[in-house]
Write a protein that binds this DNA or RNA. Structure first.
Lengths: 169, 169
DNA sequence: ACCTGAACACCGTTCAAGT
DNA sequence: ACCTGAACACCGTTCAAGT
């Protein structure tokens, strides 16, 4: 076994940077997520991240892609359309900062192929349990809309989610 | 009539800053929306905006609040729930950068009372045409979800919106 | 290969002045 | 009142070196 510090010289810096980035994102919000702060969090110089990410935005995109992979796994573990709807909302509620990064304005999915791929993977899991295409899109838009409104503090706390989820056919 | 330059000395700087900020947001995205660039756009020193906004975030919040007011006006002009749904989606599609700022991760509505108020105003217009509270929330979440997915490029271009909008009761 | 320190052009914010 | 220029501590990114 090597110490974590030595590990950076053996290819472990990339995951260490992503972990530091997520910790920063949770602790200080997206504004605190500077590349230099991420490097400090991982214990390396402000310049070391460029060995693994082409830019700050590329690191953010990688973190968001990781979020989509985790969301896809959570959806796969949930049974049925209603179950996946609840799993989707649970994920967004459990990781609000990450969820906002995944869909936020600072990342254009169009310009990050790996991100778009990871997102498509999560959505295909949702589609797999819907009756038809319009139904899958409606369900996805509904849970995504609820998750977004909740994350922004626009969603009344006393609403029973199931009473809303069942309004979509 | 005074020239626009002189007008800054007579209380017109605030709207001029908001207009410059929106132009920058549209032209360069949220990353290009620096306070110093906004000041340059309005033709004043990098420091002048602090006479009207406490911080960069306060200026962003004011711009987002203006967006909610415009959205509310667009909703008021549309007849019925389906009409308002379409008006909501039209607004998001016509002003994608502004829409993303309104709901984006860089602004927490909770910490900007005026922003939360403006958002609540827009939502109350939507609620006014729904049959009940769960239906209003479902409709709002659905159009908001569709708007967000479209803005992020996750929405298939060939989907007929009405076929999805009618899935919500 | 992987990491570092110095450097560049920026940024938000503060402050002491100017009119 | 409203605006300015200098200053501070940051930031993303690049570059020339070090091992």
């Amino acid at each position: 076994m090597s110490t974590s510090k030595e590990a950076y010289h053996h290819g472990e810096l990339r995951p260490a940077l992503l972990a530091a980035a997520e910790a920063l994102l949770v602790a200080e919000g997206p504004a605190g997520l500077s590349l230099r702060a991420v490097a400090r969090g991982a214990g390396v110089s402000h310049n070391a991240p460029y060995r693994h990410f082409a830019s700050r935005e590329a690191l953010l995109a990688a973190l968001a892609a990781e979020g989509f992979s985790r969301l896809a796994a959570a959806l796969r573990a949930a049974p049925g359309l209603a179950g996946q709807g609840r799993a989707y909302l649970d994920f967004a509620a459990a990781h609000p900062a990450l969820y906002r990064l995944m869909f936020g304005a600072e990342l254009r999915a169009g310009s990050h192929p790996a991100l778009k791929l990871a997102a498509g993977e999560a959505f295909s899991v949702l589609s797999g349990v819907a009756a038809d295409r319009a139904g899958a899109l409606a369900a996805w838009a509904l849970v995504h809309g609820i998750a977004g409104l909740r994350a922004d503090g626009h969603w009344p706390a006393d609403v029973v989610l199931d009473s809303v989820l069942t309004r979509v056919t």
